[in-house]
């Protein structure tokens, strides 16, 4: 019964959202904006639920005295610190919360982001091995774009940045567009399967 209700709710909401895109009346606009409001509220509440769940999960790990107890303790301390500091002194530009964000969280995140440079290099080391004609074309395109789009491209040849731009704007974009069209059709079919109840993750 509850599954049937869930499917009916999905069907009605899905069809309404599709219809309201084309039909503009005061009533459809009012329902639509109310749905958007609820959507934001549900998301905000889900973040609170998620946060509490995270705390609960790590508290259990600490109690179980698992090997990963240390990581869980750090997570709990960090969450509680940020919440308490924000409640006590707000989140203004000069608050301790903002200080912690700018001086702890931002550098830690930037550090993880910077791993990308190292992983790009190690992936390129393995991935651009020329073992066949298509692999040669791939490696050649990579070299042209890498050099052409770098600051040295213009120094080597005035034409190199233009050639790199051509590779990006023509063969690369054409291939991407082909994938995007397929993705678009696939998205519609997947959404329809969910709306029609043909395929659903709930049972």
């Amino acid at each position: 019964m509850t599954n049937r209700l869930a499917w009916i709710a999905t069907l009605v909401t899905g069809l309404f959202m599709m219809a309201q895109y084309f039909i503009k009346t005061e009533a459809t606009n009012a329902i639509y904006t109310t749905l958007l409001d609820y959507y934001q509220i549900i998301f905000a509440v889900s973040m609170i639920v998620g946060g509490i769940g995270l705390l609960k999960q790590h508290s259990l790990k600490v109690q179980r005295s698992s090997q990963q107890r240390g990581y869980s303790l750090i997570t709990i301390t960090a969450i509680l610190f940020m919440v308490i500091v924000a409640v006590i002194s707000g989140t203004g530009a000069t608050s301790p919360y903002q200080w912690a964000f700018n001086n702890l969280q931002a550098p830690m995140q930037a550090t993880t982001f910077s791993l990308l440079a190292f992983f790009v290099a190690s992936a390129a080391y393995r991935g651009f091995r020329v073992k066949s004609a298509p692999a040669f074309v791939l490696a050649l395109a990579a070299i042209i774009v890498l050099v052409g789009k770098s600051g040295f491209g213009e120094m080597i040849s005035q034409q190199l940045p233009a050639i790199a731009g051509w590779v990006l704007n023509n063969p690369s974009t054409a291939a991407k567009r082909g994938i995007l069209i397929g993705v678009g059709i696939g998205s519609v079919a997947t959404a329809l399967r969910v709306i029609l109840g043909i395929e659903r993750s709930y049972r």
Partner: peptide, 23 residues
């Protein structure tokens, strides 16, 4: 479906479903 990330997955993963294949 992220076209830019497909190239990374192809290099680093054993198998990659390209775009619509996932759907």
């Amino acid at each position: 479906d992220s076209t830019i990330q497909l190239s990374f997955f192809i290099v680093a993963c054993d198998y990659t479903l390209i775009g619509e294949e996932l759907y």
